[in-house]
Simulated assay, not measured.
Amino acid sequence: MVTLAEVAQRAGVSPSTVSYVLSGKRSISEPTRRRVERAISDLGYHPNAGARALAGKRSHIIALVVPLRTDVYVPIMMEIAIAVTMTARSYGYDVLLVTNDEGPDGVRRVAASGLADGVILMDVELDDERIPVLRELGSHAALIGLPADTTGLSCVDHDFATAGALCADHLADLGHRDVAFVGYAPQVYLRHAGYAERTLTGFRERARERGLRILHRPCEGTFESTAGVLGRILDDRPATTGFVVQNEGALGPLLSLLRTSGRIVPEDASVVALCPEQLAEQSSPRLTAVTGPAQDLGRRAVELVLGRIDGGSTPEVTLLTPVLTPRESSGPAPLAAAPSPRLPAPPSPADVENSHAQPLP
C-alpha cells in the first residue's frame, strides 16, 4: 500500500504538505498542489477515509440525490449520475446515492449528520421542498436543474427555454404554421418539473412571436397513449404538419402512427425531438433534435459543490447552450395539409382519458 511519505517523496515536498493538500487546512501554492496531486494520481494513493475525516473534518463524500420515478428517462439520469461519480473520484471524493423518494427528510438526514460534505440534487422542481432544508442547514449544495427562486444557490442545467424556442424557430423557418407539442406525462407538469415547464414556456413564447398555431398535449409515452394523443391532435387541428416531442417514450410510437395514418415523415409531417443524440441517430428516420451533453451537467455540478465546500465559490447559475441538429425527420411544410384518415387502431377509453389531460396555462 502506498504511504503518505512516499507521495511526499515523489512530489519533493514534506509529508505535512501532502496532508495539507488533502485536508485543505492550509493554503498551498498552485504549483505545489499540482505536484502533490500528480504524485497521488501516479502512485494510486488512497488515504484512509476515517483518518482523513478526523484530520480534515471532512468525510470526502458527496451525496447525490437521484430521481426514483417512472416518468423520467432513466438512461439520461444514469449518464448524469456516472459523470458525477467519475468527476468526484478525480477530486478524491466518493459519492453516496440517496433516492428522492425520501424527500426533504432524506436531505436533512444526510446534510445534518455530517455524513457528506456536500449535496447534489437532481430532478429539481420549480418549488422544490428539499431546497428550504438546504438553506436552513447552510449545506454546501449544487442543483442540477433550476427552481423558481435561485437566490443563494449554485445551479447548472440545460437552457430548456432556449431549447423550446429552437424547436419553434426551426419549424417556422420551414414554413409550418400548425404545430403540436407532445410533452411528458401529466404528472410531470403537475409536480412542476423545471425542465418540462421551461421548455414549454420557451416554445410557447417563440411560437407566439413567429405566428404559429400550437397545441400542447401531455402524453404517458406508451403506444396506446401516444395513439390517443395523436388522434386528438388530428381531430382538433387536422392541418397540423409539425410535431415537437419532449417525451422519449413517445418518439417511436409517434413515428409509427404517423406512417399508419398516411403521413410520410418529413414530406407530410415534420418531427423535432428534444432527446439524447444517440436516440436521435438510432431512430428511423433519423430525428432532427435539440440535444445537450448530460455528462457536462454532472461534471459542472461536482465543480460547483466542491467550490462551495472549499469556500471559494459564490452562488451562480450555469445554463448549458442547447444545439439543434437537422436530420431526416424535418422538412418544408407541405403546400396544403389534407385532413388525415382515422387511425386504424383506436386506443382504449382509459388511455384516451389519460392522454386528454388539459395543457397547463
Rank of each mutant, 00 (worst) to 15 (best):
V107P: 07
T151W: 11
H158L: 13
F160Y: 15
A141T: 15
V110D: 05
L143H: 00
A148P: 00
D157T: 03
R108N: 11
G164D: 15
R108M: 06
L115W: 09
G164E: 15
G138W: 13
G164L: 14
E129N: 05
H170E: 12
A141Y: 15
D157R: 01
A168I: 06
G118R: 02
R135E: 10
G152P: 08
L126I: 04
T150Q: 11
D127F: 00
S113R: 01
R108E: 14
S154F: 15
V133F: 03
L171C: 00
L153Y: 11
E129K: 11
L166K: 03
A112D: 05
M122L: 08
D169Q: 15
D149N: 08
T150M: 12
A116E: 04
G103V: 05
G145R: 02
V119R: 01
P104H: 04
A163D: 13
D157P: 01
I120V: 15
R130I: 03
A163W: 10
T151M: 11
G138E: 13
V110M: 02
A161K: 07
T151G: 12
H170M: 11
R109S: 14
I131F: 07
L166G: 01
P132F: 05
L153H: 10
P104D: 09
E129H: 09
T150V: 11
V124S: 03
S154L: 14
I144V: 08
D117K: 10
V156M: 08
R108F: 01
G106L: 07
M122A: 01
G138C: 12
F160E: 14
G145P: 04
G138H: 12
A116R: 05
S139T: 14
D159S: 06
R109Y: 08
G106S: 07
L126V: 04
D149A: 02
D117P: 11
G114I: 04
L115R: 14
D105P: 12
D157N: 05
V124W: 05
A148H: 10
G138Y: 13
A116Q: 05
T150Y: 11
D149C: 06
A111V: 04
P147N: 04
A112T: 00
H140C: 12
V107Y: 06
R130Y: 04
C167D: 03
S113F: 05
L166P: 03
L115H: 10
